[in-house]
Design a protein around this nucleic acid. Structure first.
Lengths: 167, 167
DNA sequence: CCGGAATGGATGAGTGCTCAACCAGTGTTG
DNA sequence: CAACACTGGTTGAGCACTCATCCATTCCGG
């Protein structure tokens, strides 16, 4: 017998209102989800970082900027887009500024606001990194899945997003 | 027209051997996966941390230890189980030791090895945290999904694990 | 049994993230 | 238009993770 926490709690017969423990099937699904996500995210970040010197967090920022008119965006909008806190983004943009890939610019319509602007060097760095990243995603994700599984993945993701989503 | 990197690369007609860009359907699946995972992992970690003072990383360590005979495990085995580097685990165990939840013990069969041992205080902390965590997982994950979706999630996770898996 | 390679793990520097505090500019209310 | 709350963003301290390096022990070939 192990000292598994949920098991001993169940043995003790946690009365009504007690935690709704996971059954064996749920445990298995949860573990598979947790491990595969962690391993995949880790692998993708590692390959991107080692292959290009850009972490996935920075990559997301550069991508978001590259997709806008004028390659610029308000700091807080950028933070939302990157699922980042404002503080985190502010720190990250500072570091990207040191690399010369982004610069800050005060916002015309709102004196409080700042615009993060992607520089040409930043865009070039992104262009160099993108093929590396997309190849990783393909190899470790899409190449492993059938079209039905890809659809299931999208369905799952979108279902969860409706719950967790941007508010 | 935006300055989207993959689009401009496709426009330029990257010849044979160029990156295998994602099509619209794949993009959508990828984004949904990426965002939902990030948001979910974030939410679970946050609720656990705020509700119990234990981060998900620490929680995983305590769980792994609690599930073994004698509530102890070799450092490197524990690292593998937690998908952690040895260095990371070593640092983490040091911090858990400061809290009095784990202690180190030299391994009898191999003088180089160390055993991480879960203390009674550590086990108690885990017992207190487990219901909080399982409730989060249920609310934000299983309560949102149909049984078919749960099965799809397990299938996806296990498929990816076979590729990424522990070697 | 001796010497070197391999293994298990610890350590420290550098970087990134979180949280709380803070500042400047804007909106709102009388 | 003065006072105050609110918003957008930055900053610094503290914690966590990575990477390279290091030390101790064990394994292995002669």
């Amino acid at each position: 017998m192990t000292s598994d926490v949920s098991q001993s709690a169940r043995d003790a017969g946690a009365g009504g209102g007690g935690p709704r423990w996971l059954d064996a099937e749920e445990q298995r699904a949860w573990r598979a989800w947790l491990y595969s996500n962690q391993l995949l995210a880790d692998r993708l970040d590692r390959e991107l970082t080692h292959g290009t010197g850009i972490s996935h967090a920075y990559y997301e920022i550069l991508v978001a900027l590259s997709e806008t008119e004028g390659r610029m965006m308000r700091m807080s909008e950028l933070a939302d887009r990157c699922l980042s806190s404002r503080s985190r983004l502010s720190h990250a943009v500072s570091r990207l500024e040191e690399r010369g890939w982004v610069r800050r610019q005060v916002c015309a319509e709102d004196g409080r606001g700042q615009l993060a602007v992607l520089t040409d060097e930043g865009f070039a760095a992104l262009e160099a990194a993108a093929p590396v990243h997309v190849e990783s995603v393909r190899r470790h994700l899409f190449d492993q899945l059938t079209p039905r599984q890809v659809e299931a993945m999208r369905d799952l993701g979108e279902t969860l997003l409706r719950h967790l989503g941007p508010r």
